[in-house]
Design a protein around this nucleic acid. Sequence first.
DNA 1: GAGGTTTTCGCCTTTTGGTCGAAAACGTGG
DNA 2: CCACGTTTTCGACCAAAAGGCGAAAACCTC
Lengths: 240, 240
Amino acid sequence: MCTERYRGGVEAEGLIAHDVLAVVLRITGTVPSVLLWRRAREPHEGRWALPGGRLGATEDVEASVRRHLAEKVDLAEVAHVEQLSVFSDPHRGPAPRRVATAFLGLVPSDADPAIPDDTAWHRVDALPPTAFDHGEITRVGLDRLRAKLSYTNIGFALAPDVFSISELRRLYAAALGHHVSATNLQRVLTRRGVLVPTGTTAAPGPAGGRPAALFRFSEHTLRVTDPFAALRPPSGAGAV
Amino acid sequence: MCTERYRGGVEAEGLIAHDVLAVVLRITGTVPSVLLWRRAREPHEGRWALPGGRLGATEDVEASVRRHLAEKVDLAEVAHVEQLSVFSDPHRGPAPRRVATAFLGLVPSDADPAIPDDTAWHRVDALPPTAFDHGEITRVGLDRLRAKLSYTNIGFALAPDVFSISELRRLYAAALGHHVSATNLQRVLTRRGVLVPTGTTAAPGPAGGRPAALFRFSEHTLRVTDPFAALRPPSGAGAV
DNA sequence: GAGGTTTTCGCCTTTTGGTCGAAAACGTGG
DNA sequence: CCACGTTTTCGACCAAAAGGCGAAAACCTC
């Protein structure tokens, strides 16, 4: 049949199914959680998988991952999306061969978007059995988030629109997995100009305490804190 | 014919040609250069393209880019390869649709590998007309190199096995496009433990001068200088 | 108003990066 | 063999950035 030769022809020509996947993270309590859905069909029936799907003919990978993500979560709640990496091990899943471009997505901690019945948030420190290489991909996404918290304004995608320093401190500590000092966090982010005071304060908790000043991020798009590390240009920089 | 329905079937199924591409950089004089080959056929005949080719059925993208690179340059001279990004704009080239995974490759300044007749090094500040989006991809590769020079030991892939500080300073300045102080470069890299003295010295130039002490990189694989920026863990770090 | 709680802020220390100039170690040419 | 130019090295100093601590501020309840 044509179908037989068809398959063979496809592989000889090197045409490959291309998927997109999203590691969608959100800080819940003291630990990040990732959005996963439970597979109802083989392969890997019953295991938990990252949202995603086939790359369409008229879209680039970022448009595609946004389209597929919209099936699992309200896209308006996803504050940031960026490309992670390509996963292409020929044995990363059963035949036929699939290549996937993975993305990182971030949802602010105050958003609690509606999600389908087969979908749930899972703490990254207690992942259920994952399908294919999705566990490894989740780890890559988490690592990326942690790295970028240090030298970008990516916190805007984890925090509510306005927030107190202690709330922000809690989010950073949860994402980074280690203690973060409120004093230092505020100073570092302020010096970089990513944090601006709103002038308003929050009501104290039931146990009292001084009312917290409220802040917001100056920008809601990713910006690298420019001379973020060693070996800066002297003063007036001339790009090549 | 089968062929007719074949094509239609392929696109309906979303099967796509996947390419790999490499931005191979090398510091030449005071400016980085990129390895390009001149296309002898349409589309974009006569324009200059990045090395690369089709992803094969039994290899992942990194193995593939190494295989294709071997056709243009001696792989043993490529000291470092890392994934850059996926380029998937449906209109990034004429039909049929192609998706490409781009890589960054680095060749030490003392290597001068043999290359085919259709291939040449081009200074990145004076690129010839490039095919498809290869000019943009080159820019992405250069940006990646510049960023990583600041917070990783990636210099090992630009420098000879042993080198003087002034040689290394020249390489960093050329790659970054701005002045770099030898004193500071040595201190920063030494403090991070990526630079180790060999105990030997180089012969002075024809005009004399104090003989330069020679160094080498402690590792020849990529390592991120761990707490490379703000928001470090307190002291004893416990990973989650 | 006393006592508990939470946030804020000033002050200090440590680490890191940037700059400068003197000294060291070589050549060459009188 | 000594003065001079050259290149590298190294110490000293400075500024910026980040980490830490504790007192003070601003709220609660009893």
